[in-house]
Nucleic acid binder design. Sequence first.
DNA 1: TAGATTGTTAATCGATTAACAATC
DNA 2: TAGATTGTTAATCGATTAACAATC
Lengths: 216, 216
Amino acid sequence: MKDPVIKVTKFTLKRLPHYYRFVSTCLDKGLQFISSEEIAKGVQINAVQIRRDLMMFEAIGTPGVGYSVEELHSKLGEVLGLKNVNEAVIIGIGRLGRAIIDYPGFERYGLKIVGLFDSDPGVIATKINGKEIFAVDELEHIVGRLHIKIGIITVPDEWAQSVADTLIKSGVKAIWNFAPVDIRVPEDVVVRNEDLAAGLATLCHLFAGKSSDGFH
Amino acid sequence: MKDPVIKVTKFTLKRLPHYYRFVSTCLDKGLQFISSEEIAKGVQINAVQIRRDLMMFEAIGTPGVGYSVEELHSKLGEVLGLKNVNEAVIIGIGRLGRAIIDYPGFERYGLKIVGLFDSDPGVIATKINGKEIFAVDELEHIVGRLHIKIGIITVPDEWAQSVADTLIKSGVKAIWNFAPVDIRVPEDVVVRNEDLAAGLATLCHLFAGKSSDGFH
DNA sequence: TAGATTGTTAATCGATTAACAATC
DNA sequence: TAGATTGTTAATCGATTAACAATC
């Protein structure tokens, strides 16, 4: 019998990490149950929306009582694919790469960075947090042998696509790209282009809008 | 006469930075005109969608010819609020903070980080790229005096909200938060919570979905 | 003119919200 | 039972797509 793949819309999916984070803190506090209203306050999302989103697990809540914190936490983690530790490699050990390597939020999500790569002879063979940095030339070899499925790209724009291609050739199925270019991948590979500058542009626009509105 | 505030939906806004980036490269290549089809290929978004999005500037394109690269570039930059340089401060000079300080995509968007702050006596008064790091205690004073409107938060979770409060009190109107918590702000302040771990969670889910699908 | 491509209207699709019956 | 809160259905809202007339 195969696992029923839980279908979630793109939009629901975006909200899940927030629920997960909030529910995690509730768990830490030792709470037993929470209502959709309480979650709503915690994550600033409409309570109806939340109930709707949580409907993907059938009948996980108890009317009149709320949701079991523990169960909800566990289910959310499962849907988000955080149950098993995911091993990843990171390519590009500049400042951004280093920041990612010890970004605090990741452990909770079970991400384990097991391979560090760079092309700069000056950093190759040095260590970060006890992990050695390898030459990019070895990327294909190592990724293939360790059966790594996730690659994190923190190299300059002009290298990003070619690094991605190498990763894919080596069997990587999920790419998290921080270079400010849109990476092309085949159908069976998922990619997330995390363009920080785009986030900035969005913020600037909202800001510009607000400030001109202010004068009317 | 006041500037007509161009209304853009949340979704259009998310696509604009991509257009902007692509059009920038066309400009660099010296192209005169591009069609919505060409942009579509470049950014992997439906051409109709693009035309629809670009309708916010009235009649900027020429039927049968396309859009003037130069004009489009300039208009997009304007809408995104990138015309004037935006000065910002950053609080939290850890690895992430340092990565942000020299992330390559930002200059193009006119972001200028003019103040660096941290609470660690070990880094206060040291310099990065020639810019001195100040004590957080001076944040309110300096931000207020320089009339800074944008604050970037790269401190640990537990400090994020309080730093945000200080920023707001000092007159900051836009906050870009990298700490993995949702920051609360008053109505007249815009905030963008850039939770990297949430991005990871999204990627993991997509990945998990793909891999189980693969077996059917 | 003929060909290309825009701007716009109408049709479709999907997400959010409101209302409420079912359940503890 | 009465009160609370879920799960679900129906109504609304907004975004995307398709079709095409207008324009260069």
